[in-house]
Design a protein around this nucleic acid. Structure first.
Lengths: 338, 338
DNA sequence: ATGAAAGCGCTAACAG
DNA sequence: CTGTTAGCGCTTTCAT
């Protein structure tokens, strides 16, 4: 690796001058400028980001952390793409960490990121009372929470109105005449699971219908849990007539179980999932789902992070996107409502 | 951030001693050891990986780069998970970069990684003659290529037998009686596209059938190209009776176009895709596809990288996994052949 | 067994 | 406008 001294030697100036043309071009003689630029180019010099990071206080390292619960979930992939696009434009790099819904793993990654002296962090905390993340916020590191907030600490957050999304989904089902509507939740301690449950219950209340607790199942937010819990539901003496799945992966698991048993959708059971996928239309049947704008959320989170890095004192904000129901045919013939 | 001096002060020893208990515990008095450990714990000290990195020559930073062409493609997500699992166990962190099939982006990320002084790199090069990656290999950085190799440079590589995978897929179709079999390729310069095309042609040859060039379309490996090129194929005076799609995303795009036109699969057109997805069974219809073991490939690549970091002189190896045809129903009633 | 000190590559005073 | 120099936090000789 060629370094500052090499360039300085080649250009016949001091390393300080080289550093200046890199960081403060205005402050140096045009001729010198030329010579140095020339040397930099011919030596193909690239500053060591490690040395830069060690030297500067923070906020100039152009590296941030991105910590997400499950990279297999296409929603988070969209978030990643959104974040990444915004980062790319600003020459930032992201250390991406997938903690697979595992708190220990999350902690390890967070430790690593801290010791990597990142400029900031975008994270979907394991749960609302994530002490580790809360402490990092308190320590002054610029942090944006995505998908899930933190309780008890002031922090920027960008998420979707989960309650409303679930409410819309269940209302749709109720209007179609369903009453025995099951809900397969992800990990119960995750804020989004709670909000979606709240929306589920609110919809029943709104229509004066009782909630049947036996139709609510809790899993771990993964594919396998969707398969297993759907089987349990189908095995009930009187199975539900409709199913609301708490996330992408659960939906796919549910679909697998339903198909393997030869149960017809939507005739024998209607299905609406939380989280849309761009290929939901190619599923059997085309899936009705609640869409979260993951890409936009990721972009937005990145922008908020840049702002906070620049101005750590900026008041915290909460950005709430709409969750929109995409009606296709897994709940019956294309309904009138859009 | 607490640092070495803080710990040293608290333990009443020099920073050198603290460093020793961290890196070479054997070389220090048991009592001192205790005191220092104690101090480290109570101060919750974590060494700065940045400083460590700047100091040490390379190979001790516990950070590697992972550069992949498209994070939207579930195959690469599997690769990521495999790499990540292996890394996690060894306390490594990965800087993950998604270059979205864009060579400029790839170059930028590679530059960043170099200047981050990574210990090693796992990469799926944009194409076989990727100069940037080739130079990095030549520079001595431990590198493992995944999914695609490099021509003209000796480098470790782990991939799948793409030609054989495509051959099996096409043979399957031919045995089912198809002759007008279209192939929608990804970017033509990508080695996997070429190998899959070779498999396609080989299958025709094997069965003494001619290849119809008008049935071969080239796209950019993305979803949209799958949609568009499928439409072109369907618009042909005599459309193909079967379609072989070059990757996951293309398959999903093809499915979307086919459904939107109300064309029946497999009655009017049979479909087999390269790349399987765990939810392929829930597509309409359940998709017959060639499976690549992405997770295992990722794990393997990580192991090879660790080896190479430890022993840069180890001869390069080429690990070839099998690509296995998963027969479901998108080519017709479950065929006899497994 | 432990400490002092050099130096990794860079930035930012401080002089000149 | 440009050069000299002091660290950033750590590892590693080299002394002791």
């Amino acid at each position: 690796m060629t370094k500052l001294t090499d360039v300085a030697k080649a250009a016949g100036v001091s390393i300080a001058t080289v550093s200046r043309v890199l960081n403060n071009p205005g402050s140096v003689n045009a001729d010198t400028q030329q010579k140095v630029q020339q040397a930099i180019r011919s030596l193909n010099y690239k500053p060591s980001r490690v040395a830069q990071r060690l030297r500067s206080k923070g906020g100039n390292s152009k590296i941030i952390g991105l910590v997400l619960p499950d990279i297999q979930n296409p929603f988070y992939v969209d978030v990643i793409r959104g974040v990444e696009e915004a980062m790319y434009e600003k020459g930032y790099a992201a250390i991406m960490c997938n903690f697979a819904q595992n708190e220990d793993k999350e902690r390890l990654y967070l430790d690593i990121l801290q010791s990597e002296s990142i400029d900031g962090l975008i994270v979907a905390p394991v749960h609302g009372r994530d002490q580790k993340v809360a402490n990092m916020v308190l320590s002054g590191l610029p942090i944006i929470c995505i998908d899930r907030g933190l309780t008890g600490v002031e922090a920027d957050v960008v998420l979707v109105d989960n309650q409303q999304g679930a409410f819309d989904a269940i209302s749709h089902l109720i209007k179609l005449g369903h009453q025995r509507i099951a809900y397969i939740s992800g990990l119960p301690q995750i804020p989004t699971s709670k909000a979606r449950l709240a929306g589920y219950e609110a919809a029943f209340k709104e229509h004066g219908l009782p909630v049947d607790e036996t139709l609510i199942k809790y899993g771990d937010s993964k594919h396998e849990s969707g398969m297993r819990l759907t089987a349990e539901l189908l095995d009930l003496p009187t199975p539900p007539t409709a199913l609301f799945t708490g996330n992408n992966l659960i939906t796919l698991g549910a679909l697998e179980t339903i198909h393997s048993r030869g149960v017809k959708i939507p005739e024998e059971i209607a299905l609406v999932g939380f989280d849309d996928m761009y290929w939901s239309i190619s599923l059997n049947p085309p899936l009705t789902a609640v869409r979260q704008p993951g890409f936009e959320m990721g972009q937005r989170a990145a922008e908020l992070l840049f702002q906070r890095i620049k101005d750590p004192a900026r008041p915290t904000v909460k950005v709430v996107f709409d969750a929109t129901l995409q009606v296709r045919s897994s709940c019956g013939a294309a309904a009138k409502n859009s």
